[in-house]
């Protein structure tokens, strides 16, 4: 479990202070798939960077599996427990071949070469990139690069992976590759997923959605509970999935529910 206890982060600059995360308390449970939504500047990326001690709270605490992120002696253990995948795949790839890139993190764990080999092979297989292992990363598509970045993280066997807008720069195909990989890691490998996104269609896949506004949690719940609140979401510069919007537009006449989230659900309700 990751516990945020009254987490506050204030950026200080010459212009003054900016409270990016304002007294948030939240528990992230093992095995869950959590989505975090919120308009640009609402503090969600700042929050994410606290989950593996890239940033430390200016007030409050973050406890990762019992370890306080302020405890410097636990830093490497925390970073091994919680991995991060960022928006721009090009900024995350460092080596000249896919497998070397994927091995970069694991090599730093001081494992036996044989074990490193095994973990890298397994990680690349999990994200479906085994056949590219000798390719140069810069020749891959955006979605493939992002999957290599993910493989580099899962080779370190984290229990949690934080995705900070992992699909913002990808084409539709790349996006679905990354989303499927994320789902697979959660369902099959039981890795806890925290996905920060601007795409409502991605948030629908989560077990729980947290909506942030001005550094605080505005509200949270299951995707159905959250996306039912169209007005509230729009007031926060967010949106509902197109399917939900359509379902609500035809709901009055057809009597179908306003909390429909997928095309399948809509079709089934309409054909009933």
């Amino acid at each position: 479990m990751i516990q945020l206890e009254n987490l506050t982060h204030t950026y200080s600059s010459e212009q003054g202070k900016n409270v990016a995360v304002d007294n948030i308390s939240l528990e992230i449970h093992k095995g869950e798939h959590l989505a975090i939504l919120g308009q640009n500047g609402c503090g969600k990326s700042t929050l994410a960077k606290h989950l593996n001690a890239l940033l430390l709270p200016t007030a409050g605490r973050v406890i990762v599996e019992g370890m306080d992120t302020k405890d410097e002696s636990k830093l490497w253990q925390i970073r091994q427990t919680v991995g991060m995948v960022f928006q721009n795949p090009d900024n995350q790839l460092v080596a000249t071949t896919v497998e070397e890139d994927c091995a970069f993190g694991v090599e730093n764990l001081g494992l036996e070469p044989k074990l490193i080999r095994q973990r890298v092979d397994e990680a690349l297989a999990t994200v479906g990139m085994s056949e590219f292992k000798e390719k140069a990363p810069h020749l891959l598509s955006g979605g493939q690069k992002q999957r290599v970045a993910i493989a580099g993280i899962i080779a370190m066997r984290p229990q949690y992976i934080v995705f900070d807008e992992p699909t913002a720069m990808l084409d539709p195909h790349g996006r679905s590759e990354v989303i499927q990989t994320m789902q697979k890691l959660n369902k099959e490998e039981n890795i806890t997923i925290i996905n920060i996104t601007h795409f409502m269609e991605e948030a629908v896949l989560a077990d729980r959605v947290v909506v942030m506004d001005k550094g605080k949690i505005a509200f949270m719940g299951t995707p159905k509970e959250v996306f039912r609140q169209v007005e509230r979401l729009k007031a926060l510069h967010l949106d509902v999935p197109v399917v939900t919007e359509l379902a609500q537009a035809i709901g009055a006449e057809t009597g179908i529910d306003g909390d429909i989230l997928t095309i399948e659900e809509l079709v089934v309700s309409l054909c009933r």
Binding site: Q39, N40, Q87, E165, M169, H198, M200, H237, L238, D239
Partner: peptide, 12 residues
């Protein structure tokens, strides 16, 4: 070129 990448829904 991709003028809305990375923006929230209202920003887009």
């Amino acid at each position: 070129d991709e003028p809305t990448a990375g923006l929230d829904p209202q920003g887009r």
